[in-house]
Design a protein around this nucleic acid. Structure first.
Lengths: 216, 216
DNA sequence: AAAATTAATTTGGCTTACCAAAAATAGTAA
DNA sequence: TTACTATTTTTGGTAAGCCAAATTAATTTT
């Protein structure tokens, strides 16, 4: 199996099983990876032989500890690259994901280590996601969706649930970035939208938007 | 055909045809690429269909202008990465080639442009090789081998013909780097070695070594 | 529990990039 | 010009990664 294929499967299984109960279905994996379920069946069998996942037919797949370890390393590489591209090379947070998807596969721990060092071994990437350290440790930040916030309170934007360029560019238009203070002025009952105060301006944010803003 | 395969073929054909008369044999290509000639036959046929090479059976292969253009772009990407890794991330000149072999395939002109800008759009990479600009232009430096130098004269190390880590680490041991001044004290008739003055120290360099040192 | 639905797996096939061995071609020497 | 040698091309074959369609298993509905 090609290393890049392995990495993409492990990373995807990791992300899918994260919130859920660890077991991932072929259908989910197929959708995320842009292949059909039959292809996934073949692949997870091979990953099982490599002892990177536990797999029982018609039940599901989950990472072994070796699989988790490798997955965390890939996540680390991805997020280090994202942060490096943003901080050192001036890419926008809407551009870094796609590039990091390629760069994360470069086979050099030393390179990642140097990149990390250059940007001061950060704990979070440009989207507010935690960066695992060399040993895979990271503090999972306990953000909540702005959608669950209460009127009158003030929050700090600490992450985004949607990483799509479209969403991130939308936030850029209102100068909403990690660290920006958001005060919830009122919550509209009808559509769940919120009237907020961001950067001293009153902005109405749709439910779609506030559901993807993670705050502290 | 996979983009990475295409790029490796174009780059290799370019390098092989550089000094020679432009036409490259399958055998040469196969050796450089680590495959057998039969594989090369298949590949160059496909490159021909893509109009990246001219190919006539049992004669040889050479790049078309479109092929040269793409080859120069790959060479640019490779050398920009090498220089970036050395200058910005502190890699040794013996380490950058291998990493650049992977990084050169990242599909983003914008990234290369930012890297180049960060290091001041240099004209030469850490080994003294010229870096083509966005349009493929570069001044081919007219270095000569130190092996062809005359006793009593003083030269400036401007490039290396051998890029192997072993050779480059050897040069490091004597603090020989691009820009170092080398005075040829005497040339030994017997084995072609040279007694030289480098960094105020007398060093004897073998024919093997002086043949791979390019000077001005 | 039987029927219907949904998901997973198998089977047969495709493409790419390879290789090994045989056949064809070119180049060189006698 | 023939014989020998080296190179190139052709001809089967393989492993990955993928798909479409058929089959089998689970899961829901009724």
């Amino acid at each position: 199996m090609h290393q890049e294929t392995i990495e993409n499967y492990l990373k995807t299984i990791y992300h899918l099983s994260d919130g859920n109960a660890f077991v991932v279905t072929n259908k989910e994996l197929a959708e995320r990876l842009g292949v059909i379920p039959a292809t996934v069946t073949e692949a997870v069998k091979k990953l099982h032989v490599l002892k990177l996942v536990e797999y029982e037919k018609s039940y599901g797949t989950r990472l072994t500890s070796a699989g988790i370890k490798q997955a965390l390393n890939i996540v680390r590489r991805h997020r280090i690259w994202e942060t490096y591209l943003a901080q050192e090379l001036g890419f926008g947070w809407d551009e870094v994901h796609e590039l990091a998807e390629e760069l994360e596969h470069i086979k050099s721990d030393k390179l990642v280590q140097k990149l990390a060092q250059k940007i001061g071994n950060p704990s979070y990437d440009p989207h507010g996601d935690p960066i695992p350290d060399e040993k895979g440790r990271f503090q999972k930040a306990e953000f909540k969706k702005l959608a669950e916030a209460r009127a009158g309170k003030t929050y700090t934007l600490s992450g985004v649930a949607d990483h799509s360029p479209a969403f991130l560019k939308f936030l850029d238009r209102y100068n909403l970035k990690i660290g920006t203070t958001i005060k919830v002025l009122e919550i509209e009952n009808f559509d769940g939208s919120m009237l907020t105060l961001c950067n001293s301006k009153e902005i109405r944010l749709s439910l779609q938007v506030v559901s993807n803003l993670l705050v502290r």
